[in-house]
Write a protein that binds this DNA or RNA. Structure first.
Lengths: 112, 112
DNA sequence: CTCCGTAGTTACCTTTTGGAACCTGCTTGC
DNA sequence: GCAAGCAGGTTCCAAAAGGTAACTACGGAG
């Protein structure tokens, strides 16, 4: 049994973590799922509410607003009667798609 | 201007979302960063606290406990004086590494 | 004798988040 | 006239998350 531990295991940190920007975008409940369901094409508010069962309209609205502010969603109002709103991916959120692919393939090989 | 919108854009949802299991593992603040810093090798409690600046000991302890319960971390007590605790990746968390790689490369090509 | 570093634990408080329920205005179908 | 579907907005409340500060126990350094 050593009498004195080494002062610190790895004095310098092993590379600063460059994931913050990505994590900031993906943070928040439902964010990733919304991206997932929009990959197949634009979807309307009510579609998404049905896709994400168990989400309340308030939370969904907030999420969509925040994602839009982050430039991850485009919101298009269709002038019809009643008016409809379509959400679709942007160039920014398309950059994130590889992460979804990766999560999917990892999830498939995971137990359960 | 159409008089009546289509009843629903995509009646069946475009594939049920298979990301839940992965998202459940990665959820929670600091989780991904902890995995990131452990990739280089086992690290001790104090190391991680320094890696993740701005994290309180309480929150870090909670995170580590939860991740251990999920089978994502191995906790090893080193019988020294004072005793030390080392955290390391498990087979399960190693399965998640591709996601980290992917996030890193996406993050690099993102603005900012 | 006091402080430092080890790895936490505990109590307390604030902030954030999320959910349920109800509301709007609009039009169509019955 | 009444209900239904569209896209939300609003209010209230509960739960969860997170931060601060103080505390534990151990030995070594000064």
């Amino acid at each position: 049994m050593p009498q004195r531990p080494k002062p610190a295991t790895q004095p310098p940190l092993p590379l600063d973590c460059p994931l913050e920007s990505v994590l900031a975008l993906l943070a928040g409940a439902w964010t990733v799922q919304i991206l997932w369901f929009l990959r197949a094409g634009p979807r309307r508010f009510g579609d998404l509410r049905r896709d994400l069962k168990k989400v309340s309209t308030k939370v969904l609205t907030n999420r969509l607003r925040v994602m839009e502010e982050h430039g991850m969603l485009e919101r298009t109002v269709i002038q019809s009667n009643p008016p409809q709103v379509e959400y679709s991916l942007t160039p920014l959120s398309r950059e994130l798609e590889p992460i979804l692919d990766c999560m999917e393939s990892v999830g498939r090989r995971l137990p359960r």
